[in-house]
Design a protein around this nucleic acid. Structure first.
Length: 282
DNA sequence: ATTTTCCCCTGCCGGC
DNA sequence: TGCCGGCAGGGGAAAA
Protein backbone atom coordinates (compact mmCIF):
# COMPACT_ATOMS: atom_id res chain seq x y z
CA UNK A 1 0.00 0.00 0.00
CA UNK A 2 1.85 3.04 -1.19
CA UNK A 3 2.36 5.56 1.58
CA UNK A 4 4.72 8.53 1.59
CA UNK A 5 7.98 6.55 1.29
CA UNK A 6 6.67 4.44 -1.57
CA UNK A 7 5.29 7.44 -3.48
CA UNK A 8 8.55 9.30 -2.84
CA UNK A 9 10.52 6.36 -4.25
CA UNK A 10 8.39 6.45 -7.39
CA UNK A 11 8.66 10.25 -7.60
CA UNK A 12 12.45 10.14 -7.46
CA UNK A 13 12.63 7.48 -10.14
CA UNK A 14 10.30 9.39 -12.46
CA UNK A 15 12.05 12.69 -11.75
CA UNK A 16 15.21 11.10 -13.14
CA UNK A 17 13.66 10.23 -16.48
CA UNK A 18 10.52 12.32 -17.17
CA UNK A 19 11.46 16.02 -17.19
CA UNK A 20 11.95 17.18 -20.75
CA UNK A 21 9.90 14.36 -22.23
CA UNK A 22 6.78 15.05 -24.25
CA UNK A 23 3.60 12.97 -24.10
CA UNK A 24 2.57 11.58 -27.47
CA UNK A 25 -0.70 10.02 -26.35
CA UNK A 26 -2.53 8.32 -23.50
CA UNK A 27 -4.60 5.19 -23.81
CA UNK A 28 -7.24 4.73 -21.14
CA UNK A 29 -8.25 1.11 -20.71
CA UNK A 30 -10.38 1.68 -17.60
CA UNK A 31 -12.55 4.80 -17.63
CA UNK A 32 -12.81 4.69 -13.83
CA UNK A 33 -9.10 5.32 -13.58
CA UNK A 34 -9.46 8.92 -14.72
CA UNK A 35 -12.52 10.07 -12.84
CA UNK A 36 -13.97 12.58 -12.42
CA UNK A 37 -12.98 13.94 -15.83
CA UNK A 38 -14.14 12.43 -19.09
CA UNK A 39 -11.47 10.20 -20.63
CA UNK A 40 -11.69 12.18 -23.86
CA UNK A 41 -10.86 15.48 -22.17
CA UNK A 42 -7.95 13.85 -20.34
CA UNK A 43 -6.62 12.44 -23.61
CA UNK A 44 -6.86 15.84 -25.27
CA UNK A 45 -5.21 17.66 -22.39
CA UNK A 46 -2.27 15.28 -22.13
CA UNK A 47 -1.49 14.83 -25.81
CA UNK A 48 1.49 16.97 -26.74
CA UNK A 49 2.17 18.13 -23.18
CA UNK A 50 5.73 18.21 -21.92
CA UNK A 51 6.77 17.14 -18.42
CA UNK A 52 8.35 19.99 -16.48
CA UNK A 53 9.03 18.17 -13.23
CA UNK A 54 7.70 15.45 -10.94
CA UNK A 55 6.48 16.37 -7.48
CA UNK A 56 4.78 14.78 -4.52
CA UNK A 57 2.36 16.02 -1.86
CA UNK A 58 1.44 13.49 0.79
CA UNK A 59 0.60 10.33 -1.15
CA UNK A 60 -0.21 12.26 -4.32
CA UNK A 61 2.21 12.10 -7.25
CA UNK A 62 2.31 15.25 -9.37
CA UNK A 63 3.33 15.46 -13.01
CA UNK A 64 3.70 19.17 -13.73
CA UNK A 65 3.10 19.87 -17.41
CA UNK A 66 4.28 22.74 -19.58
CA UNK A 67 0.65 23.50 -20.38
CA UNK A 68 0.16 24.73 -16.84
CA UNK A 69 -1.90 21.66 -15.94
CA UNK A 70 -0.82 19.01 -13.47
CA UNK A 71 -1.57 15.30 -13.73
CA UNK A 72 -2.33 14.11 -10.20
CA UNK A 73 -1.97 10.39 -9.58
CA UNK A 74 -3.02 8.55 -6.43
CA UNK A 75 -2.15 4.87 -6.28
CA UNK A 76 -4.37 4.14 -3.25
CA UNK A 77 -3.84 0.48 -2.29
CA UNK A 78 -2.66 -1.51 -5.26
CA UNK A 79 -1.73 1.01 -7.93
CA UNK A 80 1.57 0.62 -9.77
CA UNK A 81 3.45 2.73 -12.29
CA UNK A 82 5.78 0.86 -14.63
CA UNK A 83 8.40 2.78 -16.61
CA UNK A 84 9.94 1.53 -19.83
CA UNK A 85 12.13 3.16 -22.46
CA UNK A 86 10.15 1.17 -25.01
CA UNK A 87 6.93 -0.87 -25.04
CA UNK A 88 5.40 -1.49 -21.59
CA UNK A 89 7.06 -4.23 -19.56
CA UNK A 90 4.69 -4.30 -16.60
CA UNK A 91 2.11 -7.00 -15.89
CA UNK A 92 -0.40 -7.89 -18.58
CA UNK A 93 -3.25 -7.87 -16.09
CA UNK A 94 -5.04 -4.96 -14.45
CA UNK A 95 -3.79 -2.36 -16.90
CA UNK A 96 -5.73 0.89 -16.51
CA UNK A 97 -3.90 3.52 -18.57
CA UNK A 98 -0.83 3.80 -20.74
CA UNK A 99 1.06 7.03 -21.44
CA UNK A 100 3.34 6.90 -24.47
CA UNK A 101 6.04 9.54 -24.84
CA UNK A 102 7.57 10.85 -28.02
CA UNK A 103 10.40 8.46 -28.84
CA UNK A 104 8.45 5.44 -27.62
CA UNK A 105 9.01 5.35 -23.84
CA UNK A 106 5.96 4.34 -21.81
CA UNK A 107 4.48 4.82 -18.35
CA UNK A 108 1.97 2.09 -17.53
CA UNK A 109 -0.61 2.47 -14.78
CA UNK A 110 -1.79 -0.87 -13.34
CA UNK A 111 -4.21 -1.29 -10.45
CA UNK A 112 -5.71 -4.57 -9.29
CA UNK A 113 -8.24 -3.06 -6.91
CA UNK A 114 -9.19 -0.15 -9.16
CA UNK A 115 -9.07 2.44 -6.38
CA UNK A 116 -6.21 4.42 -7.90
CA UNK A 117 -6.97 7.61 -9.81
CA UNK A 118 -5.42 9.88 -12.39
CA UNK A 119 -6.92 13.33 -12.67
CA UNK A 120 -5.97 16.65 -14.19
CA UNK A 121 -5.83 19.94 -12.40
CA UNK A 122 -6.03 22.63 -15.05
CA UNK A 123 -4.22 25.30 -13.13
CA UNK A 124 -0.78 25.87 -11.72
CA UNK A 125 -2.18 26.04 -8.21
CA UNK A 126 -1.06 22.53 -7.33
CA UNK A 127 2.35 24.03 -6.73
CA UNK A 128 0.89 26.43 -4.19
CA UNK A 129 0.13 25.97 -0.52
CA UNK A 130 -3.44 27.19 -0.87
CA UNK A 131 -4.46 24.41 -3.24
CA UNK A 132 -3.87 21.75 -0.61
CA UNK A 133 -4.87 23.75 2.45
CA UNK A 134 -7.54 22.01 4.47
CA UNK A 135 -7.18 18.75 2.60
CA UNK A 136 -3.56 17.93 3.32
CA UNK A 137 -1.58 18.81 6.42
CA UNK A 138 2.13 19.43 6.85
CA UNK A 139 4.73 17.37 5.02
CA UNK A 140 6.34 15.28 7.77
CA UNK A 141 9.82 15.52 6.25
CA UNK A 142 9.69 19.28 5.70
CA UNK A 143 11.24 21.83 8.10
CA UNK A 144 7.72 22.99 8.94
CA UNK A 145 7.03 19.69 10.69
CA UNK A 146 8.37 20.40 14.16
CA UNK A 147 7.49 18.81 17.49
CA UNK A 148 5.71 22.03 18.37
CA UNK A 149 3.66 21.88 15.17
CA UNK A 150 2.70 18.29 15.94
CA UNK A 151 1.78 19.24 19.49
CA UNK A 152 -0.44 22.05 18.23
CA UNK A 153 -2.19 19.72 15.80
CA UNK A 154 -2.78 17.04 18.43
CA UNK A 155 -3.94 19.39 21.17
CA UNK A 156 -7.39 19.92 19.67
CA UNK A 157 -8.10 16.32 18.79
CA UNK A 158 -9.79 13.79 21.06
CA UNK A 159 -9.78 10.91 18.56
CA UNK A 160 -7.31 8.04 19.00
CA UNK A 161 -3.78 9.12 18.12
CA UNK A 162 -3.64 6.54 15.35
CA UNK A 163 -6.80 7.92 13.72
CA UNK A 164 -5.30 11.40 13.84
CA UNK A 165 -2.05 10.19 12.24
CA UNK A 166 -4.06 8.55 9.47
CA UNK A 167 -6.00 11.78 8.90
CA UNK A 168 -4.20 13.33 5.95
CA UNK A 169 -5.30 16.84 6.89
CA UNK A 170 -3.18 16.65 10.04
CA UNK A 171 0.07 15.19 8.69
CA UNK A 172 0.24 14.20 5.02
CA UNK A 173 1.46 10.83 3.83
CA UNK A 174 1.23 8.49 6.81
CA UNK A 175 -0.74 5.28 6.24
CA UNK A 176 -1.49 2.19 8.25
CA UNK A 177 1.98 0.68 8.21
CA UNK A 178 3.99 3.73 9.21
CA UNK A 179 1.39 4.84 11.75
CA UNK A 180 1.90 1.57 13.61
CA UNK A 181 5.67 1.73 13.24
CA UNK A 182 5.88 5.34 14.44
CA UNK A 183 3.65 4.68 17.45
CA UNK A 184 5.74 1.67 18.42
CA UNK A 185 8.92 3.71 18.03
CA UNK A 186 7.46 6.36 20.31
CA UNK A 187 6.11 3.83 22.84
CA UNK A 188 2.59 5.21 22.49
CA UNK A 189 -0.57 3.09 22.44
CA UNK A 190 -2.58 3.81 19.25
CA UNK A 191 -5.85 4.11 21.18
CA UNK A 192 -4.65 6.99 23.37
CA UNK A 193 -6.62 10.20 22.78
CA UNK A 194 -4.37 12.47 20.71
CA UNK A 195 -4.74 15.37 23.12
CA UNK A 196 -3.64 13.19 26.07
CA UNK A 197 -0.07 12.82 24.86
CA UNK A 198 2.52 14.63 26.96
CA UNK A 199 5.37 16.77 25.58
CA UNK A 200 7.90 13.94 25.91
CA UNK A 201 5.63 11.52 24.07
CA UNK A 202 4.98 14.04 21.31
CA UNK A 203 8.70 14.64 20.96
CA UNK A 204 9.31 10.89 20.66
CA UNK A 205 6.46 10.52 18.19
CA UNK A 206 7.74 13.41 16.08
CA UNK A 207 11.21 11.84 16.00
CA UNK A 208 9.80 8.36 15.26
CA UNK A 209 7.65 9.56 12.35
CA UNK A 210 10.60 11.22 10.67
CA UNK A 211 13.08 8.44 11.30
CA UNK A 212 10.72 5.65 10.17
CA UNK A 213 9.74 7.50 6.99
CA UNK A 214 13.37 8.33 6.19
CA UNK A 215 14.44 4.73 6.80
CA UNK A 216 11.67 3.50 4.53
CA UNK A 217 12.69 5.85 1.73
CA UNK A 218 16.27 4.63 2.07
CA UNK A 219 14.99 1.06 1.69
CA UNK A 220 12.91 1.90 -1.38
CA UNK A 221 9.63 1.47 0.50
CA UNK A 222 7.73 -1.45 2.00
CA UNK A 223 6.60 -4.27 -0.29
CA UNK A 224 4.47 -6.02 2.30
CA UNK A 225 1.84 -6.68 -0.33
CA UNK A 226 1.72 -5.44 -3.90
CA UNK A 227 3.89 -2.35 -3.87
CA UNK A 228 6.45 -2.20 -6.68
CA UNK A 229 8.59 0.67 -7.93
CA UNK A 230 8.64 1.93 -11.53
CA UNK A 231 11.02 -0.88 -12.49
CA UNK A 232 8.80 -3.55 -10.94
CA UNK A 233 11.21 -4.00 -8.04
CA UNK A 234 10.15 -4.63 -4.45
CA UNK A 235 11.13 -2.36 -1.59
CA UNK A 236 13.17 -3.73 1.32
CA UNK A 237 11.62 -1.98 4.31
CA UNK A 238 9.35 -4.89 5.24
CA UNK A 239 12.25 -6.73 6.86
CA UNK A 240 12.93 -3.73 9.10
CA UNK A 241 9.35 -3.31 10.32
CA UNK A 242 9.14 -3.72 14.09
CA UNK A 243 5.44 -4.48 14.60
CA UNK A 244 3.38 -4.29 11.38
CA UNK A 245 2.48 -7.78 10.18
CA UNK A 246 4.30 -9.42 13.11
CA UNK A 247 1.44 -10.64 15.28
CA UNK A 248 2.65 -13.43 17.58
CA UNK A 249 6.32 -12.70 17.02
CA UNK A 250 8.49 -11.46 19.89
CA UNK A 251 8.98 -7.72 20.26
CA UNK A 252 12.53 -6.74 19.30
CA UNK A 253 12.73 -4.48 22.32
CA UNK A 254 11.17 -6.47 25.18
CA UNK A 255 10.69 -9.98 23.71
CA UNK A 256 6.99 -9.83 24.61
CA UNK A 257 4.48 -10.99 22.02
CA UNK A 258 3.23 -8.53 19.43
CA UNK A 259 -0.56 -8.51 19.25
CA UNK A 260 -2.99 -7.50 16.56
CA UNK A 261 -6.04 -5.47 17.35
CA UNK A 262 -8.32 -2.99 15.64
CA UNK A 263 -8.08 0.79 15.98
CA UNK A 264 -9.88 3.33 13.82
CA UNK A 265 -11.28 0.48 11.69
CA UNK A 266 -7.76 -0.57 10.75
CA UNK A 267 -5.73 -3.65 11.55
CA UNK A 268 -3.30 -2.47 14.23
CA UNK A 269 -0.13 -4.09 15.55
CA UNK A 270 1.21 -3.21 18.98
CA UNK A 271 3.52 -4.38 21.73
CA UNK A 272 1.40 -3.92 24.82
CA UNK A 273 4.42 -3.81 27.10
CA UNK A 274 6.25 -1.14 25.06
CA UNK A 275 3.03 0.77 24.30
CA UNK A 276 1.04 0.86 27.56
CA UNK A 277 -2.60 1.72 27.15
CA UNK A 278 -2.54 3.99 30.17
CA UNK A 279 0.44 6.07 29.12
CA UNK A 280 2.98 7.43 31.60
CA UNK A 281 1.90 7.66 35.28
CA UNK A 282 2.37 11.42 35.47
C1' DA B 1 -16.46 21.12 13.77
C1' DT B 2 -15.11 16.73 14.76
C1' DT B 3 -15.61 11.86 14.69
C1' DT B 4 -17.38 7.57 12.97
C1' DT B 5 -19.35 4.61 9.48
C1' DC B 6 -19.97 3.08 4.99
C1' DC B 7 -18.53 2.24 0.41
C1' DC B 8 -15.69 1.35 -3.42
C1' DC B 9 -12.92 -3.00 -5.60
C1' DT B 10 -10.56 -7.64 -6.20
C1' DG B 11 -7.87 -11.49 -4.44
C1' DC B 12 -6.95 -14.39 -0.81
C1' DC B 13 -7.76 -17.31 3.07
C1' DG B 14 -10.01 -19.95 6.73
C1' DG B 15 -14.09 -22.45 7.95
C1' DC B 16 -17.55 -25.72 6.99
C1' DT C 1 -14.29 -29.78 -3.46
C1' DG C 2 -16.52 -25.62 -3.52
C1' DC C 3 -18.98 -21.96 -1.59
C1' DC C 4 -19.02 -17.94 1.42
C1' DG C 5 -17.98 -14.53 4.75
C1' DG C 6 -14.41 -11.74 6.33
C1' DC C 7 -10.39 -9.15 5.66
C1' DA C 8 -7.06 -6.12 3.40
C1' DG C 9 -7.07 -0.34 3.41
C1' DG C 10 -6.84 5.14 1.21
C1' DG C 11 -9.93 8.44 0.98
C1' DG C 12 -14.23 10.65 0.16
C1' DA C 13 -19.05 10.99 1.11
C1' DA C 14 -22.45 10.52 4.33
C1' DA C 15 -24.10 10.06 8.84
C1' DA C 16 -23.83 10.77 13.73
Amino acid sequence: MPELPEVETIRAQLAAVLPGRRIARIEIMDAKAVEPDEPESVRAALAGAGIVDVGRRGKYLLLHLDTGSTAIIHLRMTGQLHWSEAAPTGPEEHRRALITFEGGATLLFCDLRRFGRLRLEHTVRTRSREFWAGRLGVEPLSPAFTADALAAALSRRSAPIKAVLLDQSTVAGIGNIYADEALFGAGVHPQRPASSLGPMEIARLHRAIRSRLRAAIAQGGTSFDRYRDTRGERGAMQRLLKVYGRAGEPCTRCRGAITKTRVAQRGTYICLRCQPRQGPPC
